[in-house]
Computed example of a mutant assay.
Amino acid sequence: MQQIKGLLFDKDGTILDFYKTWIPINRRMALDAAGGDPDVAAELLRASGHDPETDIVKPGALLIGSDVTVIADHFAQVLKNRSSADLYEVVSRNFRDGGAEHATLIDGSIEEIERLRDAGYRLGLATNDTFDGMQASLGRFSGILDLFEFCVGCDSGHGAKPEPGMGLAFAQHTGLDPENCAIIGDSIHDLEMGRRAGFGLRVGVLSGPYRQVDLEPYADVVIDSVVELGALFNLPTKAATQI
């Protein structure tokens, strides 16, 4: 393992609980795009990998980790009567408003990230949500965004995952070589971005819809959640630090 000094985190499914946060957002976004027609909304969800009957989002679904433009273009192809530009506004609004209403933290995620910051790691956040959506969802929780010195969304000018731009921008911002950076995320998009950016470590987490078998081909290591990062990086336990 390279000497890792910078940690770039995904947001949804990594810091935020994917299902508690995104199931209601997906449902409202599809209904909005469908002009209020529940049958058309259900068709949109099914076509995007979200089963409207069970609310299970299958690994690799469009609605896991895709940026606003990709989702808007896909919805336009399915609906055929609305433009991508129109649907871009619909998706962006639902990302922002839905995040502000439904964002739910993974238990222990912020405490572990604070521990990593206190240990000297440089921290960043990169999401395929919009920048406003990121601020709306994490802004619900006091002080969280202040933990990260670098925060970008899909519309921040560095492209969207799995392209390498966000990762390269993080390395440039921190002055670190990409080999000294790690990506932590729950999706193939995250891990592939890390590979393309030349990151020294790709950490998959199983706190989102993807399974271990899905992530293993793209990750250097797969852990249950960010709560295990301290152990991965051999940080002392809380009990040890208090002695």
Rank of each mutant, 00 (worst) to 15 (best):
Q2I: 10
Q3P: 15
L8G: 02
F9G: 07
G13P: 02
F18T: 01
F18E: 00
W22C: 00
W22N: 00
N26W: 12
P38Y: 04
V40M: 11
A41E: 01
A41C: 07
L44S: 00
L45A: 02
R46M: 07
A47W: 06
S48T: 10
G49K: 01
G49A: 03
H50S: 10
P52G: 08
D55S: 08
D55V: 00
I56W: 10
V57Y: 02
V57A: 05
L63Y: 00
I64R: 02
S66T: 03
S66I: 01
A72C: 03
S84T: 11
S84C: 15
A85T: 14
S92F: 13
N94E: 03
F95T: 00
F95A: 00
R96L: 15
T104G: 03
I106C: 10
D107A: 12
S109P: 09
I110H: 06
E111Q: 14
E112S: 11
E112W: 12
E114C: 12
G124R: 03
G124S: 08
A126N: 07
N128S: 09
G133A: 04
G133M: 02
Q135F: 14
A136C: 11
A136V: 06
F141G: 01
S142G: 13
S142I: 12
I144E: 09
L145Q: 12
E149Q: 13
S156T: 10
H158Q: 15
F170R: 04
A171T: 08
Q172S: 13
D177I: 06
E179H: 12
N180Y: 14
A182H: 02
I183K: 03
D190N: 07
D190S: 07
R196S: 11
A197D: 02
A197T: 08
G200L: 06
V203H: 02
V203I: 11
G204S: 09
S207W: 01
D214A: 09
P217Y: 01
Y218T: 09
A219I: 03
D220Y: 05
V221G: 05
V226L: 11
V227L: 12
E228G: 11
G230R: 06
P236W: 10
A240V: 14
Q242V: 15
